[in-house]
Amino acid sequence: MTTVIIDYGSGNLHSAQKAFEQAARAEGIATKILVTSDPEQVRKADRVVLPGVGAFADCRRGLDAVPGMIDAMKEFVFQSSRPFLGICVGMQLLAQRGLEYETSEGLGWITGDTVRIEPKDPALKIPHMGWNNLLRKHAHPLLENIPETLHAYFVHSYHLKAKNVSDIVATTDYGGELTALVARDTIAGTQFHPEKSQKLGLALIANFLRWAP
């Protein structure tokens, strides 16, 4: 099996790669973890991961700047039943639009926009930075066997406000509910960083590597 992490100049690819390798090794899952900007490798992959840090529009431009990448991702997602995972801004890009600094187009795979966090309590700090709990909305293979007591590491000022509640697998509480994990068909995305979330993160990555939607 080959798991591709898309390199489009955003995100801590080195950390992500090592976390995926570690999770695979710990669970005895045989997969090669390939970091690449080659759309052909995305087409051929068994699983694809889209990381992303920084601003939505910058990430979108970065993705657009890799010739053929978005087409390859669409082909991967819609012409097969192979799993796709977005992380942080990679998850936010699943939305229809991003409203950070400027309005930019998302991939539109999850209905909704990526909007600024507006906590009810104005004393709450932005970014939402640190360890928070996941509030599960419905069961999903990515959360299987992960104890509810474990925390996930978040660092973000925007979140994907999904329109369809059925797409929201988990939220997190920060002066109101923020979307933490979305999933639809073979597509999933985490607002938190599994590659930085110790036990919960490695367990979720292993679940993704085993996920057979």
Partner: peptide, 11 residues
């Protein structure tokens, strides 16, 4: 930093 990031899955 590189070696730490390879082994520690925390910020």
């Amino acid at each position: 930093v590189r070696r730490t990031a390879e082994a520690c899955f925390m910020p």
